[in-house]
């Protein structure tokens, strides 16, 4: 897997498009996509929004994330970092933060490349960018 993280509105999707040569229709949006689409998607953006949605549907996001890692191991996952703040007063918000953190740790663990984006600037925080990793997502599409 590949993972792109960072705060909201930092330019994560743009970096993903550039690094992995993604077309707009390669990217599904976690805020609106179906769960089934995730298992074959080249790239899922707003994964933190997907976590909120499936949590609201009483699906365990940690279990879902583990399944996603085994069924779609070449996916590019884009998600916000959401944990850097005061512990929320609302219990559901606390649960959301906890489950997002744990799911993110699982994706990072299963990723050979993790990029963090801040102000449009990327830093590779796990693995390294090489041609194979960059193009493997596209190759998958060619094969299917």
């Amino acid at each position: 897997m590949k993972m792109i993280v960072g705060g909201a509105f930092q330019g994560k999707t743009r970096i993903a498009e550039k690094i992995f040569s993604l077309r707009a229709d390669d990217i599904i949006n976690g805020a609106v996509c179906s769960i089934e689409e995730c298992y074959s998607a080249v790239c899922i953006k707003n994964y933190h929004e997907l976590i909120r949605r499936i949590m609201n549907n009483n699906i365990d996001p940690v279990e879902f994330t583990q399944k996603l890692c085994s069924e779609n191991p070449e996916a590019v996952i884009i998600m916000d970092e959401i944990g850097c703040g005061i512990i929320p007063i609302e219990k559901n918000e606390r649960i959301y933060r906890e489950l997002t953190g744990r799911s993110g740790c699982i994706i990072a663990e299963n990723s050979d490349l993790v990029i963090r984006v801040c102000c449009g600037i990327m830093t590779v925080i796990k693995g390294e960018i090489n041609e194979d990793k960059i193009y493997s997502s596209r190759k998958n599409i060619g094969e299917s």
Binding site: E81, G83, C84, G85, I87, G101, R102, C105, A108
Partner: peptide, 11 residues
């Protein structure tokens, strides 16, 4: 340091 549930303790 890091946000909450960012894997700090485990590390």
């Amino acid at each position: 340091t890091g946000g909450s549930k960012s894997g700090k303790s485990r590390y």
